[in-house]
Amino acid sequence: MNDTPAAKILYCRCAFAQVVPATTKDEVLAGLCAAETPFESFADLCEMSARRDPRLAEAIAGEVPVRIAACYPRAVKWLFHQAGAPFPDDDRVEVLNMRDTPAAEVVASLLGSGKEPNPSEP
């Protein structure tokens, strides 16, 4: 039995630009939808940051690990900061870069080791 708390998963669709490869975005979303894990997804993190959307602060609040599938980690970190939701000083928040990383790798990291998508799930 693994006592590590389940990570909270966030996914950015980057819907206002074409800078994240569409196939990567689609495959990562499909991977999340195929698993039994809950997740939170945003149309566009930049838009949420611009609006100082309170959901960003809520999303990284608490003590559980957070994994974010989005863009370059440097950009994502400071987007949250600019929204008034700075990352904690520890390594609790992990950013996975869909611009450069293969989808399968992103999905595996999001779901954690040994938690591959369940193909038998409806």
Binding site: A6, R13, A15, D26, L29, A30, L32, C33, E36, T37, P38, F39, E40, S41, F42, A43, D44, M48, R55
Partner: peptide
């Protein structure tokens, strides 16, 4: 169905939260 709904809604500008029995 889940993929279709989530992807389409995100592309339209919605935020989507999926809650499962694990939540």
């Amino acid at each position: 169905c889940r993929i279709g709904v989530a992807g389409t809604l995100l592309d339209q500008g919605y935020s989507v939260l999926r809650i499962t029995a694990r939540t």
